[in-house]
Every structure is written in structure tokens, then in C-alpha cells.
């Protein structure tokens, strides 16, 4: 029973991070109808970048804020070059362009950091075990859990109450209509890429803190895509719920069945959801002839 709760909590904390990354993915899909297959590479790149900045002699908080500003700016610029010409292009092209960006990021990261194997962040807090209701839990797991929860709440507030967030949602709904209301659609898309990059970096930092920084973080991007599809592509709430479902399913299969299945269980769940509920748990049902 104790293992059950441990697995549940660690699954939920991993799931929050998946959900967070999936939110970035949903954000881009909503604002520009582009599937960002480079999300995993963005997670990995951000995690490495945070590591680089934490090694300089500056306070960790400042370093992280600096990195977030840099990746935000990079996301903003990404919209200008390869992505703006992709508006209105066929799906095949938009899929491949994000994959091209992803492959490029991976190559760049290999060039810069492939020497550093098994690196860890300098520890910010000392790890110890806390008993909550008789269940022993690592304080890092709890910290990541709380941090992820706070991030999701902040993003929710941002999209529901701030002017920029509302503009982005409007642009997502209908480009032409948003434009006629005086919203700059290209700017909204650029902002969504910037936020997606920031969210990916935060997710990369949290995951890297839990499991070390390596190129395996790229796979998280695909798991986040699976989470977004399980939750439904149009819904932030769905992305978080999908992330939680997949995180918990992963730790449970990892704990009770075996490592091999743990790797594919996100995709298994996703295929089942797609077959029985093609638009996800909270997605917008589109009536479309296939």
C-alpha cells in the first residue's frame, strides 16, 4: 500500500511536468494549428541551458530568469523565420518544419554538450525523506509537485484574465476575426511560441532536477504530445489531466509490470483514446468527414 502511494505521488509529480509541457504544445496548436514536434528538443535544450547558466557565478534565481528570457526571445524569433511562411501550408510541411527545428536543436546540443555525461544541477535543497500520512516521500518530489501545480495555476490565470492571454486565445479561435478586432495575429503566435519555449524550459529544469540532464529528455516531448492528445488538443485543462493520467500510468506500469512497457504505455493509452474518443477527453468535437 505504501508503494502504491509512493508511485501515485511520483506519478502525479511527473504527470504535472508532462502536463506543463503539453500545455506549451496545446498553446502552439491553438494559436497557429501547428503540431510542435520540436517540443522534446526544446525541453532538452532548455534543461542544458539552465545547467550552463547555473554553473556561472550568479545567484540561481537570476540565472534561471535569464535563461527563461533567452528561450522566450528565441521562441519569439522562431515564429519570424521558419514558421510564418508555414501559415496556410499543408499539414505535411508544418509537421516536417517543426521536426527540422527539432533535429537542428538536437544537433546543436550534441555539438555543445555531448561531452558532459551524467550531469546534475547543483542541488538547491538538500534531499531528505518526509513522512506524510505514514508514506515516506522525497522532498524533491513534493517540491516539483508543488512547483508544477503553481505553474499550471499561473498559466490558467494568465489565459483567463490577462489581456495578452486573452488576445492569444482570440487569435487561436479565428485568425481573421482576431485581426479585425485589432489583435496582431503574428504577434500572438510569436508570444505563444515564446511561452511554449519558456514552459518547456521549466519542464526540462524540473525533470532534469529529478532524473539528471541528458538527451533522453527529448522523448518527454513525444510523451507530452500523447498527453495533449489524451486530454484533447484544444484544452489546457485536458493537457494537464492527460499529463497526470499518463504520468501515473507510467509509474504504475514501471513499478508493477516492467521497464519496457513503461516506455510505450503513453502511446498505448493515446491510441486507445484516439480510437474510442478521437478528440480526446476535453477536446473540441469537430464534425468532419474522413
Amino acid at each position: 500500500m505504501i508503494t502504491f502511494f509512493q508511485l501515485l505521488i511520483s506519478g502525479l509529480s511527473v504527470g504535472f511536468i508532462y502536463g506543463l509541457i503539453a500545455v506549451g504544445f496545446v498553446l502552439i496548436f491553438k494559436s497557429s494549428q501547428i503540431f510542435n514536434f520540436a517540443q522534446g528538443e526544446m525541453v532538452m535544450f532548455g534543461a542544458f541551458l539552465v545547467w550552463v547558466f547555473l554553473n556561472y557565478d550568479i545567484p540561481p534565481v537570476v540565472a534561471i530568469i535569464l535563461v527563461l528570457m533567452i528561450v522566450g526571445a528565441a521562441g519569439y524569433l522562431l515564429e519570424r523565420f521558419p514558421l510564418r511562411p508555414m501559415i496556410g501550408q499543408p499539414i505535411f510541411a508544418t509537421i516536417m518544419i517543426t521536426m527540422g527545428i527539432g533535429v537542428f536543436l538536437k544537433g546543436l546540443a550534441l555539438l555543445l554538450w555531448s561531452r558532459h555525461i551524467g550531469i546534475q544541477y547543483p542541488s538547491v535543497i538538500t534531499e531528505k525523506t518526509i513522512n506524510i500520512l505514514g508514506v515516506p516521500l522525497s522532498n524533491v518530489t513534493i517540491g516539483v509537485f508543488v512547483f508544477g501545480l503553481v505553474m499550471v495555476i499561473i498559466l490558467g490565470l494568465f489565459f483567463n484574465y490577462s489581456r495578452t492571454g486573452l488576445h492569444m486565445r482570440a487569435a487561436a479561435e479565428n485568425h481573421q476575426l482576431a485581426q479585425s478586432m485589432g489583435i496582431k495575429v503574428t504577434r500572438a503566435i510569436a508570444q505563444s511560441w515564446a511561452i511554449a519555449a519558456i514552459v518547456a524550459t521549466i519542464g526540462g529544469f524540473l525533470l532534469g532536477y529529478m532524473r539528471g540532464i541528458d538527451f533522453g529528455l527529448i522523448e518527454i516531448g513525444l510523451i507530452a504530445i500523447a498527453a495533449a492528445l489524451v486530454g484533447g488538443l484544444e484544452s489546457f485543462k485536458g493537457a494537464v489531466v492527460g499529463g497526470l493520467i499518463i504520468g501515473v500510468a507510467q509509474t504504475f506500469t514501471g513499478g508493477y509490470v516492467g521497464y519496457g512497457l513503461k516506455e510505450v504505455v503513453p502511446f498505448l493509452i493515446m491510441v486507445l483514446v484516439l480510437i474510442f474518443k478521437p478528440y480526446g477527453l476535453f477536446g473540441l468535437v469537430k464534425i468532419e468527414r474522413v
Partner: peptide
């Protein structure tokens, strides 16, 4: 000073750039 796996990373980077450039300029 760049380090290991230069060939692998060059392969990936040129491939990524080639895809992006082709999609934008000659889809």
C-alpha cells in the same frame, strides 16, 4: 574545444537546416 561527436552533430544540424530551407523556399 568543441568536443566529441562533431560529425554526428553536424549531420543533424545540416539535415535540420536543409529541411527548413527546402520547406520555406522550395516545398
Amino acid at each position: 574545444q568543441i568536443g566529441a561527436q562533431v560529425s554526428a552533430s553536424l549531420v543533424e544540424m545540416t539535415f535540420g537546416v536543409a529541411i527548413v530551407l527546402f520547406l520555406v523556399y522550395e516545398p
